[in-house]
Amino acid sequence: MKREKTTKLVLTFATMTDAMAADSVLGSELGRIIPVPSEIHAGCGLAWCADPAKEEAIFEKIAAHHLTFEGKHHIALY
């Protein structure tokens, strides 16, 4: 099967605890934890990867739960 790159929303974190807080709040419907892609830099090796179409829902939850993230990126990933 040939893998193709598509644009993804990637959020990075300073700490694993911030990443896992996001994981516990956002859940599998709004994306998943991935290793930080080499194209970007982050303190923590865990990042949140999601369909960009879900960005609004994600940021509503981030605001509601006072989640902390380090950076927001749109990058092409497999």
């Binding site: 605890t17 896992m20 807080a21 994981d23 516990s24 991935i34 290793p35 090796g45 865990l46």
Partner: peptide, 20 residues
Amino acid sequence: AGRGVHEAAMNANRNVFAAR
């Protein structure tokens, strides 16, 4: 925990965060 994102690492990650 904190050393990967595969299923086993995420089991540990989630448990450590829940304990915290």
